[in-house]
Design a protein around this nucleic acid. Structure first.
Length: 113
DNA sequence: TACGTGACCACGT
DNA sequence: CACGTGGCCACGT
């Protein structure tokens, strides 16, 4: 096990697990919260590896534009991620979250580091 | 070992 | 206001 990257992945997963039901956050917000400000890509990569871990609601993580950029990586079809979000009361149209700012959950603001 | 790619974001032109 | 480039870090070929 690589301690360093495992620690980073663990941190990302921990934050994602803290996302309340019916809310979403962005890769950049998580990266920023962890202090990796410019390394949002790593958060995305972490999500990629988290795929298969039911404890990590990756469907609640989208890009800063509110677009389901990672839907393509979900198993069960292209609309699997959208249906998961809609099941939590989040409206999604054409891979775009409606009222994104309203359902947006910022760890820095909500967790108040 | 080096290059290219990636579930992104911010800035410059 | 749209597009291009840089930056970040890790992984695959």
């Amino acid at each position: 096990m690589k301690d360093s990257q495992s620690n980073f992945f663990a941190d990302v997963y921990d934050v994602v697990r803290l996302i309340p039901k019916g809310r979403v956050t962005s890769y950049g917000a998580i990266a920023n919260y962890l202090g990796l400000k410019r390394s949002a890509r790593m958060v995305g990569w972490a999500m990629n590896q988290s795929h298969g871990d039911d404890s990590v609601p990756a469907h609640r993580v989208v890009n800063r534009n509110g677009v389901l950029s990672g839907k393509h990586f979900f198993s069960g079809g292209e609309h699997a991620m959208q249906q998961l979000l809609e099941a939590e009361g989040i409206k999604v149209i054409d891979d775009q979250i409606q009222d994104f700012k309203d359902v947006f959950w910022d760890p820095m603001s909500e967790l108040e580091l």
